[in-house]
Write a protein that binds this DNA or RNA. Structure first.
Lengths: 186, 186
DNA sequence: AAGTTCATACAGAAAAAACTGTACAGAGTT
DNA sequence: AACTCTGTACAGTTTTTTCTGTATGAACTT
């Protein structure tokens, strides 16, 4: 990556960097779908093309950003399992490289992020259902009120059914069944 | 929803609102996974429990927010196909209601958002591959340089293969094949 | 144990995004 | 045609997020 290896012809180096930069730009932008910042997306792109695991300092130099930013950026990417910490003897610094198995990245992302959401939503819905049922049984509940409660309950039940389905989708992904439906290449 | 229908017992009304509010809170928060603001998530929740399609003014009143915000919020939800515009004769105002078929919402979201990302990424990758191949054929390309280009090319090829897979996943979703793998309830 | 080197917590600065009020264009009504 | 009502574009303000510099504690070296 660095210029001071005399194997590099400066002009060619620039050409390679230009190509990489464009790819990084696009991939980074679309990574906002994963809920990461544009700059974190760029960091990912940098690591993607790096020929070896990088340290925080190296990243900071390349990105022209503070080491602190690299630290937090790497941490979010670690949480998303998009980069891995790598051990290398002789180095005291932490080294990081991207997870090149994007199939894995994709399914992991779903497993962690969506599962969390599904669970918290299900819990909220179930709690609400209990409350509604309790309310519906109160003696002073008018006809009108009962109707409203019934409609709410119906909506919530439908939502819950959807979440149960989504939960099974996530299961299927974790177990790799998605690859039965849509096989990976070679 | 409004209090001035005398069928409502105020205390019970409060109780219902409290339940709804908690559900809206949770669902709204998790909607950030779809890349929408917390407040847009709340707007969705409001529409979810509304017993009839709502106008922008009604939403603004309920959310205690400006009509402009409602307008933009509804627009993003429309883009995500999470709400639908509804026509009602006699009313000059636009009316909106949520799409209650969340299975549909889920697959539509993928179809639109992820397809867009896949396409733009694939285009960028293909363009980069061409560039690299062109560079590799230049006569003054050193051994070292050729190696670097080769490694970049390999990474890009791998990424492209992943995107082709993802593209097929999206196809499968659009065609409802996901429901073969994980059937919806009832 | 003293001295380095490293990652990260934290507070403040900079940048981005969300939100609002005003203004205006288009559709509908009189 | 004049008038009214509705949705949204736009500019400015407020709020939130991102980014940085400094400080600190932990791990390693001497």
């Amino acid at each position: 990556m660095s210029l001071d290896q005399n194997e590099w012809n400066e002009q060619q180096y620039e050409a390679v960097q230009r190509i990489r930069k464009r790819v990084i730009e696009v991939v980074g932008r679309n990574m906002e779908l994963y809920g990461v910042t544009l700059s974190t997306g760029h960091l990912y792109g940098l690591l993607f093309f790096a020929d070896k695991p990088m340290t925080l300092d190296e990243m900071g130099r390349e990105m022209q950003m503070s080491k602190t930013s690299m630290s937090t950026g790497v941490r979010t990417l670690l949480d998303l399992k998009m980069v891995n910490k790598v051990w290398e003897k002789g180095s005291r610094k932490d080294l990081y490289e991207v997870e090149y198995d994007w199939y894995q990245t994709f399914t992991d992302y779903f497993a962690t992020q969506w599962r969390r959401a599904v669970e918290s939503n299900m819990q909220a819905l179930r709690r609400a259902m209990k409350e509604i049922e309790r309310l519906a049984q109160q003696p002073d509940t008018s006809e009108f009120m009962a109707g409203v409660l019934q409609k709410d309950l119906e909506k919530i039940r439908q939502a819950e059914s959807y979440y149960r389905w989504l939960d099974r989708v996530i299961d299927a992904m974790e177990e790799g069944q998605l690859f039965d439906l849509v096989p990976r290449e070679s």
